[in-house]
Design a binder for these strands. Sequence first.
DNA 1: CCCTCTTTGACCTTCGCTGACCATATCACT
DNA 2: AGTGATATGGTCAGCGAAGGTCAAAGAGGG
Lengths: 155, 155
Amino acid sequence: MSNLAGSIELYIRRLLDASPNAAICLQRRELAEHFACVPSQINYVLSTRFTLERGYLVESRRGGGGYLRIRRLDLNRDKVLQLLEMRQSLAGQNLSLQKATDFVHRLVEARLVTRREGLLMKAVISFEQQKRDDVLEIFRGVMLSRMIEVLLHET
Amino acid sequence: MSNLAGSIELYIRRLLDASPNAAICLQRRELAEHFACVPSQINYVLSTRFTLERGYLVESRRGGGGYLRIRRLDLNRDKVLQLLEMRQSLAGQNLSLQKATDFVHRLVEARLVTRREGLLMKAVISFEQQKRDDVLEIFRGVMLSRMIEVLLHET
DNA sequence: CCCTCTTTGACCTTCGCTGACCATATCACT
DNA sequence: AGTGATATGGTCAGCGAAGGTCAAAGAGGG
C-alpha cells in the first residue's frame, strides 16, 4: 500500500482481525497522529473502506472521551435468510456502480460466493454507460464475453 | 523497432520476462517520462500490444498512488487457451438464447466453470426480450437480484 | 495518392489528502 | 445548576496527482 488511505485501512483491518469479536474502539485523533495526517483523513478511510455495503459498521461519539467504534458484521449465520433479505433490498433499485460493487465484495468477504463467482457478478454489473440503443440486441454476447474475460483474469 | 510504440512494448516485455511471476506494476507517468513521450502513448501501446487476445492482462487505478499492472497469462495452460478460443468464437455475435445456453453448458462440461458459475451465467443471459428503453437503468439491480436468486437455489 | 499505424494534446474522471469550519460531549469553576 | 473552556469527532469544498478517452495530425509503406 503506497498511499496513506491504504495503510490506514490495512492497519484497521489488522486490528479487527486481532480482535476476538471483530470490533475495535479507537480515537480519531490518536490514529491520525499515528499516521501523521489530518484527522479528517480517517473519515475518508472510514467512508470509503468501511461502509455498510462492505459489511462494516462504524459508530462514533464526539466530545471529551470521544471514540470511533468499528465492527465487522458477521454474515455467516442464516445465509439463506440474509441473502433473501438482500435480494429484497435490491429488487427494483437503481444501484450505483460503487454500491453494487461493494455489495458483491461483501458477499465474497462473507464467503457466500467464491472469488470467481464474485468476479463474474462484477463483470455483469459493472458495465459503463452504453449510449447505443441497440445494445440490448447484442447484450447477451457482450455479457458472456465479459464473464469469460473474468475467468481469464483468474488464470 | 524504430518506432516508439515498439520500444515501449519491448521494454515492458523485458520487465515481464525479468519478473518471477510475469507481472509488473508501474506508473504511466514514469514510463512516459522514461521514453520522453506523452502519457497517452502508453495507453496506445497497452491497447494495441498488451491485449487479452495476445495473452496479457492490464489493470489500473487512478488518483494519487495510481498504477498500471500488467500480467502475462500462461498461454500453455490448456484452460486459458480453451477460454480464449471460446471467447473468440462468440466475439461480436448476436447469440440466441438457445445458443447462449448451449455455450454455457459446454463451458460446464469442459469443467471450465463450476456448476454454480454456469448457473450464474445462465441467469445473466437468459433474460427475455425487454423492449423497454429504461431497462438499462434498472439493469444492474435486476441482474444482481437474479444472480443471488440462483445462489439461493443452490444453497 | 491512399490506407494504416503512430504520435500528440486537449479535455475528462477518479482518488487521495488537506484545512477551514461545524457539532457535541465532558469538565472545571462559580 | 449554569456556563464557558476544552476536547473530540463530522462535513465539505477544493486542490493536486494519477490514469482514460478521443479526435486530429503525422509518418510510412504500397
